Computed example of a mutant assay.
Amino acid sequence: MDYPTLGRSGLKVSRACLGAMNFGTSGGVASCDESEAGRIVDAFLEAGHTFFDTADAYTGGRSEEILGRAIGRRRDSVVLATKAFLPQGPGPNDRGLSRAHLTRALEASLRRLGTDYIDLYQCHQWDHGTPIEETLATLDGFVRAGKVRYIGCSNFTASQIVESAWAAERLGVTAFTSLQPQYSLVVRDVEAEILPACERHGLGAMVWSPLAGGVLTGRYARGVAPAADSRMGRLMASPAPMARAWADGLLHERALGIADEVGRVAAELGTTSTAVAIAWVRRRPGVTSVVIGPRTVEQLHGTLAGFALDLPAEAAERLDEVSRSAALTPVNGMPPGSIRERVRS
């Protein structure tokens, strides 16, 4: 089993990270009940993986509670990550990355997880209303108090990663160890500037949605509405506009074409589309760990197969080609064909 270090830290994590977003009930619908969640955690640990990720906002805090109980006495044998930012109440200070909110959010997460420390405490997204200096100073205080071991961020842009790194150096406080970005064959935008920024500033990438919301599993077909119990079906039926928009951004003709090629590669290799999609993303430059979110033990085993699959170079090149887009070109302000562009090429 391979346990790389996360960014420039000494924290060793497994290549697979079990995301607990599905643990509990959301909107009256049980994604994964506590009994099945316990079996998933047991099977994940038995397979040799040790990295877990959740957030205070997942299923109204139930995800943290269920994950904490499932880990139980094995707490010191795992790497436990959670996140804060999203609303935890109706008040103006019940969200964001301010000292006021983060201090309460951390204590609540520790209580729900049933632990006195968190290995990786992450900012769920950038807070435009709070200076990053305030956020980093607050997180540094958590580290100094022993309540948090390492800090990370999620869904930051390249410029936000750079700004955070500069602020941490200027203040002499703990810097981010990791970034959690979306990354898959369907969504490769991070390759242009975000992953290079992570490499430059010492952040390890633990990528989420490697199956593009299930699109890359081959579950969805053209002209057929997603099943109500599928990930896309639940997102499209969600009252939250952001959830519906995210589904629309993944379930389109280009994505289905990529899924078709994934299916062809899987058939040639005698494996599944899920395994192929995972094998592709886990070997990408800059990727430390891949966050997976199974709802059943069977889904877990199917996903973990991708961490053992040795994807042939020819197959990887085919997938690179079918999924490549103009978004992979960094923005430098120079028009195509300019002198600077020709020199660089």
Rank of each mutant, 00 (worst) to 15 (best):
F44Y: 15
R231M: 14
M21G: 03
M242T: 10
F307H: 09
A243G: 06
E317M: 11
S323T: 07
P87D: 11
L251V: 12
S9M: 09
Y58L: 06
A70G: 05
A279C: 10
A237F: 03
D119Q: 05
H201E: 08
I71N: 08
S338R: 08
P210H: 07
A227L: 07
S164D: 02
G28L: 06
V297W: 00
D189R: 13
V291C: 12
P226T: 12
T138W: 14
L251C: 05
A212M: 03
V78D: 00
L251A: 09
S230E: 14
Q122P: 13
K12R: 12
A37T: 01
V262C: 13
L18A: 00
P196S: 01
P241Q: 05
F51D: 09
E34T: 02
V281C: 10
A108R: 14
I40E: 01
R144M: 14
E133F: 00
G270H: 10
S184K: 06
P294L: 08
A81Q: 05
S230A: 06
A175N: 12
E169G: 08
N155P: 09
E133I: 02
S9L: 08
L195I: 15
A266I: 07
E46P: 01
M236P: 02
P210I: 04
A167Y: 02
A247Q: 08
R144W: 01
H101N: 06
